[in-house]
Amino acid sequence: MNHPLQALRTFVEVGQRGSVKAAAQALHVTPGAVSQQIRLLEDRLGVVLLERERSGMRLTPAGVSIHPQLLQAFLQIDQAVRNLEAAKAQKSLTVSTVATFAASWLVPRLGRFKLLHPDIEIRVEATSELVDLRRDRVDVALRHGLGDYPGLEVMPLMAPVLTPVASPAFLAEHQATIQEAADCLDYPLLHDGDRADWALWLQAHGVPEDVRAQRGSAFEDDFLLIRAAEAGQGLALVPQAYALEEIAAGRLVQVLDKPWPARFAYYTVTQPGASARAEVRAFIDWIVQEAAA
């Protein structure tokens, strides 16, 4: 005789908890649905398994005779499912980073990681918003800033050298005199899509927080940002390597040449102890090697 699995599960929950209401809450169904499943099972078996008493539901002798084995069976099923989910989770990684870094640096290199670790699935989330690693189920965050992430494990990855540039025409028109990082705030600023670089760069140079650091036009792509600077629309903070050709040709001028603040860098950020997982360790080791190269 075939017995409905849901009815057996419902019987186990009521027998274990001694209450139809408590079982209903555990199973996320109504008390009426629980009672219906118990009646279905008792009708199939032709015996009474549970009887009502003042304090709730009590197992009958017939119920007592089968409840322990059924309870153990469902515990084994639950454990098997948890093991499968854990095994699947261990073979996948969610990486969070900002869109520009994902597009220009991380994603083009991920093929090499897959060659080394074909069994690890990588999911890339591109956002400039703060993430809660535990709540958002993010295994590794790649962020650029000053490395101040309290309560998390932080490892410096690399320091992209961003340099402020402008067109000669812009500098002449504004009669710009820029000798310190703070002087940049006196002129229109051009931003990347995250609008984070100027504020962090200024902070790294010891400039107090200033609302002017957030003003100005924003561009999703570094190429567009450089074109806007060439067109004389303002000061742009761009990766030095991207602007070498424009500077050499005289289309852009590096407006400030100061020692690079080493704290302003990309960092890997993980929950405490997360790097003990083989998959997380493999990804961090790989990305550190890529950054060094």
Rank of each mutant, 00 (worst) to 15 (best):
A276D: 01
L157C: 08
D285W: 09
I284F: 11
Q254I: 11
P272K: 04
P108G: 02
L70I: 08
L70G: 01
H28C: 08
D43F: 13
E125T: 14
A22I: 04
T60A: 04
A102D: 02
V269F: 05
R17P: 01
V140W: 02
G111E: 07
V14S: 07
H144C: 01
S128W: 03
G63V: 03
T30E: 03
E121Y: 12
D192V: 08
L142W: 00
F264I: 07
A62D: 10
D119T: 15
I287R: 06
P259L: 13
A166R: 10
A86W: 01
D285K: 00
Y266Q: 01
E53Q: 14
A213K: 12
P160C: 00
R212Y: 06
G193H: 07
A159N: 12
T268K: 13
V98M: 01
H205N: 07
E290H: 06
A282S: 11
A196F: 06
L189F: 08
S275T: 15
L84M: 11
A291V: 09
P108A: 10
V29A: 12
L27E: 08
A213V: 05
Q25I: 10
R215V: 06
E51F: 01
L235V: 07
F223R: 15
E153F: 08
Q233H: 11
D197H: 09
G193V: 05
A126D: 00
R52V: 01
G273C: 09
V124T: 03
S92C: 11
G193F: 05
G216T: 02
A169C: 01
L252F: 09
H117T: 05
E279D: 14
Q16N: 15
C184L: 07
S92R: 06
V14A: 00
M57W: 04
Q79W: 13
E13R: 09
D257Y: 12
F101A: 11
I284P: 02
S19A: 00
L106C: 00
T127F: 13
E121G: 12
D43W: 01
V288K: 06
V138R: 05
V131K: 07
T10S: 01
S96T: 14
